[in-house]
Nucleic acid binder design. Structure first.
Lengths: 339, 339
DNA sequence: TTGAAAGCGCTAACAT
DNA sequence: ATGTTAGCGCTTTCAA
């Protein structure tokens, strides 16, 4: 059997309450007693049972994080920000992967709730769950922070990149390079894609460059197969397309386009220009190096952790919204349109 | 206040014991009572408090996973295997990142212990912690599974790739291509590097191709900066080196070598051949595509989950060791030595 | 088939 | 400054 507070109390010849006070340091204890208790704790190698403590206190120092996938380094880097912030505050992290599936996402959240986590961060929540009242109900019961979601619920805190601005940055950059036939490549089930699509449609329609067929949805945008799926799709489309440029909603998709071009012997950026999004490490490693829109992923994660902490410490009262700026990282995948 | 089992019992006019039996289905309950209780549970939206349940049962359905970094997709893919296996068994995952630091790793483990997780998986445990008795003590108290560790403790289960064989595969492949001046690039604080180094030293000494100066340690092998650090180091060394090939302990380092070559205008594979290790997605995306040794990362993770489950269900009695085979993935980064 | 009650390890209010 | 004790929500033995 493991050593409990009772064993310590007995051996130190004090009450369990005193031991508890020594451990938590929240009530006065005479120095001599304190020393005595601490000595016993050391000699018994006593470690307080967090499970019991947190159950008793009706809270926990666990936070839950839900991500749609771990195959996109974007999420790993966000996680890193979250992790760093929370371990400093001696919270532990529970991780759940929704696989871009709304039902699974709900299950993750429900699991976390049943475990009484003290708060939940959801990265890129599924659009379906945003449309019904699921999250409204959750947010009433527990601190909730969304990363990169743009619906506005009153009880939820948000940290997002300004992906509308970012998308406009990217598209205008392409426009400045004289491109007008720009393919738009997106994935499914995330606000982020919708935001970028709106920006794309808005700009292109305004200039009368818009063509329905230029909008391409490649399905799951963060899976193991995203790069290859995108390549496949582009392989079908590109040969018969007059497009001279591509704006991809994330770097994985952009990498897929690059690979398709290699297969088709299309020179980048001479014959086709590409702009990605996120600036994950991969984008610097592929050839040519991707021009892309930078999201500060670490910051996204650590700010979300910060807001969640504020919510936890204010009894779910403080709700904030943080919008981070994006910037365009100019590298080698964009050139002036030659047509 | 949240609905508890007491509320349900009251409303259903039965005892809490009966409600408990209905929920767990572990004791006979008359069908009529069962229905009644279930109806109340639904009407009250009652969700059992896992925290209370697990505290009472003196166990938990949480498993802890420790990884040295999340900047190498290797760990993400292993995690994915672990996650998939455990969510099917309705365990939850706690994640902790040790940043390749032995003290932090111990802290992660201790946190997990204090939370009464039911088992722990450590990916690439830190060599320092392997050398003292830390893990022996832990293994006596709790199910422990190591991924890619090669010390053998009796109470620990292991899932590893046969990295000795894998390294030999890679080096012999280079040898077959007539290379004899082969740089060996490794990182710090993991068994995996030591294993590969031994294989390298053994083969090269036997053939009298060994040179101390060909062994390069680039520090942390899985950080955000691994690629760039490796590039930096190689940039210093390569110009004055007679090496015609490189064996890198992971693909991140191999990518660093590729980048260095680009800066130095060294053609791959004509002037320098490179073999990596892991076969992370990145290795297919960079130019030239990396020849590398495949580790089945998903399998590594799911097998580890399997072994941990066996340990949990056998009260920490079953200890197994699984050694997975590697294979060489031939791509574009190796050619016949031209000297 | 059901209910009563002990107890899991700890905290915190109350008493001394 | 310290001890006593009532719970936290649940499972599980024991009795009925």
């Amino acid at each position: 059997m493991k050593t409990t507070i009772v064993d310590v109390a007995k051996k130190a010849k004090v009450s369990i309450a005193t031991v508890s006070r020594v451990i938590n340091g929240n009530y006065p204890v005479k120095e001599a007693t304190r020393e005595k208790v601490l000595a016993v704790i050391r000699s018994l190698k006593y470690v307080p049972n967090m499970q019991a403590r947190e159950f008793n206190r009706q809270k926990s120092t666990i936070v839950g994080v839900v991500v749609p996938s771990i195959y996109n380094m974007f999420f790993a880097e966000v996680m890193n920000g979250v992790e760093e912030h929370f371990t400093n505050e001696s919270y532990s992290l529970m991780l759940c992967c929704s696989k871009n599936d709304s039902k699974l996402e709900m299950r993750c959240i429900n699991d976390f709730m049943a475990r009484n986590v003290s708060g939940i961060i959801v990265v890129s929540p599924h659009t379906e769950n945003l449309q019904n009242t699921f999250y409204e109900r959750i947010a009433r019961q527990i601190p909730l922070v969304f990363i990169n979601s743009y619906e506005k619920h009153p009880n939820i805190s948000y940290v997002s990149n300004d992906q509308d601005a970012g998308a406009r940055l990217a598209i205008n950059y392409l426009l400045e390079h004289k491109h007008r036939d720009i393919l738009f490549i997106r994935g499914e089930h995330s606000d982020s894609y919708d935001i970028k699509e709106q920006a794309y449609v808005d700009i292109m329609k305004r200039r009368h460059y818009f063509h329905e067929k230029h909008m391409i949805n490649i399905g799951d945008g963060n899976s193991n197969e995203t790069v290859d799926n995108t390549m496949q799709k582009v392989l079908e489309i590109l040969p018969s397309s007059e497009a001279t440029a591509v704006f991809a909603c994330n770097d994985l998709m952009a990498a897929g386009v690059v690979n398709a071009c290699k297969k088709l012997n299309i020179a980048i950026p001479e014959e086709l220009s590409i702009v990605g999004y996120d600036n994950i490490a991969l984008s610097r490693f592929i050839e040519p190096k991707l021009t892309t829109v930078e999201q500060n992923m670490f910051l996204l994660g650590s700010q979300a952790a910060q807001l969640l902490l504020e919510k936890i410490n204010s009894d779910n009262q403080s709700s904030k919204r943080i919008m981070l700026e994006n910037s365009l990282v100019e590298r080698e995948s964009v050139g002036v349109c030659s047509r």
